[in-house]
Design a protein around this nucleic acid. Structure first.
Length: 889
DNA sequence: GATATGCATGGCG
DNA sequence: GCGCCATGCATAT
């Protein structure tokens, strides 16, 4: 990334020197091209030691004397442009004096130099998103910027040495704010250190100003910093205890060198443990860079740390850390991490930073424009982001702008995690990343959002094929994760940003192919959560399962019963295509192979024979092969079907998402933001990454959109009504103990544990023939599996929809659905005038309490579909509500 | 019309 | 009740 031109020359960049550069030329100042001057050893050393100008420019013009110490300062070249401060009255001051006279009093929390003052070319080098005019005018003296101890902005060695001073300058300029900053006590030391540092010309110093952005792909779960995390976690429990990562302040390089550097360095394989030490050490150093945070809050750093949300606590694997510390002499200090939200990973290119983290680890900014930060990735590639904030209420919202190129470069998507670390002693900031699919166990254990992201920890696939990063995890641990994390999800529903928030963002080109899935296939990928029975809604012939809880993505399997009547499922190995028998309650990943057969070790290898005979297999597959056709047969071939298929993109998106992730917990499917749920038609959710392609507008009323939205609305409604329903149910039972009612779901389950001829597709609970003329199955027709348990809240009114989603387009959607419902009901009334006894009537009674009626979650009241037993099944029903009668497991 | 920008809104901890 | 923050959205370019 650096010095292409400079490096292209074999001679030292110093025009005064004609020596050849070594194989590993020393880095000098940043050129206007953005590259770093490459110097020969001699010149490089001079530069590093801060005597470059004295050595080579002594006779050049531009020398001035410090107004305080009278020391000669070269002000006439780019090399020295950051080594002095322009005084308001005129004249200059060396940084050392500036520090004493200005900086110290102001107690700048940040080490000087944080400003990124590289030439525009550099700034724009990797940025295609936006231009930062600010940079152009900022020059070496970032007058606009707030003082920052943070070295993150600068990446060139030159900056290191001079930057500190530069920072001081800015600090001085902004010293007005000094009062808000850290107590002088801590600052003094920092500044002192910095002032010295530049002079000493430690190589490390230079790096200090760089933010390194490392691309990390955690693959090694076993060696992940789980321990660290755990330890960390334990510490988290105790607010008084400094916390890993967060506690790591931006210590002056000196201190870092002295303390931190000693700690871990190189082989960070043992980083986890050492890290902790590191952190402690740093904290003890009093380097508490938290000072930054205090700049505004004036809170003690410890307090600050304690307030940082766990979700931002950095969690890195050894590999990650090692990868970050490209430099063998570096020690990685994880600062914080953030799971990318849909908007973070979106095309807008704005990464919202946790406020506290931003204030704690990023240079303080006093102006909304903020300042450009240079970040390096693992490969050493520099990225420049604009670190700024927006006034938000009485607070601030910190964002990194211009992250799109980087995000794309790293193939990051919503749900993936970016980690900010600090490379010690260079002081570089490292922005690593972790794909959601490779989340560490600790992530999952400690971070609900990760779980929500479907952070399938299964790293096998990922490990084997880095190129598959963009793909969601295919591991077989999805199901397990689901099970394992389920409680967590329940416990902490929202947790935090969900990786999988953004549907479209998670769909890569290759995945688009998957979107071509038929809706059956898409639905087939969805499986109800363990022990949950989905209710099935059929709209225009399309079935949609509804799960009370988040569905999971699983490999389509065939459910049946074995000789002894035990429910089992058959799954086909991805590799050998052999069918294996598994327990019915086994949740499988979308990609399943014999090796994943934990239930039957004897057949956990593709070399093992298949248990099924050809005939048996044919029998087994027969229903499957016929189901779709039958289903489609019953489906009216109307244009809506096209929409439905298109709309399946939405559904398929979900499926795709789920492939790698645990299917996002209902409301979390797309984002923490309640407005973004599967089916959400906002631009973020609907637009494909490319911004091209068909979109589902908010007003889209295609069946799928309708249903998907409805599905989630159902979840909301259920949540709201759960309590009241329970009460109502109880009351109902008490009041009408003798009244004949449709069997309750539980009963149905008992009666028909294995409906559908022992064969179910995709889901153990799914009945592929619900709308296949088998609606006359009373059992199925009763939404036995519905959370409503046959006792829908009939008090729900369509208007409720508006309440639930004010301003949404659900209203219109619901109107359509209602129309369809009415149509359906009319059909019912015609055909079932003498319908089932439990059918209260042929007309929908919004406020009717008939047990034979059901109210869709969307507020549409439906009569039990089983009443249409004698209806023409060849005609698709506009709306049909039924419930699968099969129980999972 | 597309994209960038900046602020407002509102859910949630 | 407050602050954070995800994201909507109006406006600017």
């Amino acid at each position: 990334m650096s010095s292409a031109s400079s490096s292209s020359l074999k001679v030292c960049f110093n025009s005064e020197c004609k020596e050849l550069k070594s194989d590993r030329p020393k880095k000098g100042w940043r050129l206007r091209t953005g590259e770093l001057a490459e110097l020969c050893d001699r010149c490089g050393s001079a530069y590093e030691e801060g005597r470059f100008c004295e050595t080579f420019h002594l006779s050049a013009s531009g020398w001035r004397s410090c107004e305080s110490c009278r020391k000669g300062i070269h002000c006439g070249c780019i090399v020295s442009s950051h080594s002095f401060v322009l005084l308001d009255p005129g004249g200059i001051e060396c940084l050392a004096c500036a520090r004493k006279n200005i900086i110290l009093p102001s107690n700048p929390p940040w080490p000087p130099s944080m400003f990124f003052h590289s030439p525009l070319s550099e700034r724009f080098k990797d940025l295609s998103v936006k231009s930062w005019s600010q940079l152009a005018g900022s020059g070496p003296v970032p007058w606009k910027q707030a003082p920052s101890l943070f070295n993150s902005a600068i990446s060139s060695p030159e900056l290191h040495f001079r930057v500190p001073y530069e920072v001081d300058i800015s600090t001085g300029i902004n010293k007005v704010n000094g009062n808000e900053r850290l107590p002088a006590c801590s600052l003094d030391k920092k500044i002192e250190d910095f002032s010295e540092r530049p002079m000493n010309g430690s190589l490390n110093l230079g790096a200090q100003d760089i933010i390194i952005m490392n691309g990390i792909k955690s693959e090694d779960k076993t060696t992940s910093c789980l321990n660290i995390s755990q330890q960390d976690s334990s510490r988290k429990e105790d607010p008084s205890t400094p916390q890993f990562g967060l506690t790591v302040p931006f210590a002056p390089s000196n201190e870092r060198n002295g303390q931190i550097g000693v700690v871990g360095t190189h082989s960070q394989q043992t980083l986890p443990p050492s890290l902790e030490k590191q952190y402690n050490g740093k904290m003890h150093n009093g380097l508490d860079s938290s000072g930054d945070t205090q700049i505004r809050n004036g809170r003690p750093r410890a307090e600050y740390r304690a307030r940082l949300l766990p979700r931002y606590w950095p969690r890195c694997t050894d590999q990650e850390l090692q990868q970050i510390s490209m430099d063998s002499n570096s020690v990685i200090t994880p600062l914080f991490q953030k799971t990318l939200s849909a908007s973070d990973a979106g095309r807008i290119g704005r990464l919202v930073l946790p406020k506290k983290c931003a204030e704690a680890y990023f240079p303080p900014i006093s102006q909304p424009e903020g300042l450009p930060l240079k970040i390096l990735d693992v490969k050493g590639k520099e990225w420049i982001f604009q670190f700024r904030f927006w006034p938000n209420n009485n607070s601030r919202m910190y964002v990194l702008e211009g992250v799109t190129p980087c995000i794309q470069s790293m193939q990051l998507q919503a749900g993936d995690t970016v980690t900010f670390s600090r490379l010690e002693p260079e002081g570089k900031l490292v922005m690593g990343f972790r794909k959601a699919s490779s989340a560490t166990p600790s992530d999952q254990d400690n971070e609900t959002n990760k779980i929500g992201n479907g952070a399938s920890t299964h790293g096998d696939v990922e490990l084997a094929d880095p190129s598959s990063w963009s793909k969601v995890d295919k591991s077989g641990y999805i199901a397990k994760e689901v099970l394992r994390s389920k409680s967590s999800i329940t416990r902490k529903r929202k947790g935090s940003t969900l990786g999988s928030k953004s549907k479209h963002l998670r769909i890569e080109n290759e995945d688009l192919i998957k979107l071509k899935l038929t809706w059956e296939e898409a639905q087939g990928l969805l499986r109800p959560p363990p022990n949950h029975i989905p209710s099935i809604v059929v709209i225009d012939g399309f079935e949609f399962e509804e799960y009370e809880d988040a569905p999971v993505i699983g490999k389509p399997t065939i459910f049946t019963t074995d000789n002894v009547g035990e429910k089992i499922q058959w799954v086909q190995c991805e590799d050998c295509l052999k069918w294996r028998k598994l327990p019915a309650n086994a949740l499988l990943p979308s990609k399943w192979t014999c090796s994943d057969n934990l239930w039957n070790p004897e057949r956990s290898s593709c070399s093992k024979a298949q248990e099924l005979t050809t005939e048996q297999l044919e029998d087994l597959l027969a229903p499957i092969n016929s189901a779709p056709s039958r289903k489609m047969k019953s489906t009216k071939q109307d244009p809506d079907n096209v929409d439905a298929l298109e709309g399946l993109d939405t559904l398929a998106n979900l499926a795709i998402l789920g492939e790698g992730d645990v299917f996002p917990a209902s409301a979390q499917a797309t984002t923490k933001h309640p407005r973004h749920r599967p089916g959400c038609s906002c631009i973020v959710c609907i637009q494909p990454p490319s911004g091209k392609g068909p979109k589902h507008k908010q007003t889209c009323t295609c069946n799928v959109c309708l249903t998907v939205k409805r599905r989630f609305r159902t979840l909301m409604l259920r949540r709201e009504k759960k309590q009241s329903e329970k009460e109502a149910e109880t009351t109902h039972k008490k009041e009408q103990p003798q009244q004949s009612q449709p069997p309750l779901p539980e009963i149905l389950l008992e009666d028909d544990p294995l409906p559908c001829s022992n064969t179910e597709i995709s889901s153990p609970n799914r009945n592929p023939e619900v709308n296949d003329g088998s609606d006359d199955d009373p059992n199925r027709l009763r939404s036995s599996a519905s959370p409503f348990k046959g006792q829908i809240d009939l008090n729900i009114k369509p208007e409720r929809e508006e309440e639930l989603s004010p301003g949404s387009d659900f209203g219109s959607m619901m109107m359509l659905l209602q129309d369809a419902t009415k149509k359906y009901l009319r059909q019912q009334s015609l055909s079932s005038s003498g319908g089932a006894g439990d059918s209260s009537g042929s007309q929908t009674q919004p406020d009717g309490g008939g047990a034979g009626e059901e109210k869709l979650s969307n507020g549409v009241t439906l009569r039990n579909s089983h009443s249409d037993a004698d209806e023409d099944h060849g005609e698709p029903l506009s709306v049909n509500v039924s419930a699968s009668t099969s129980a999972a497991g």
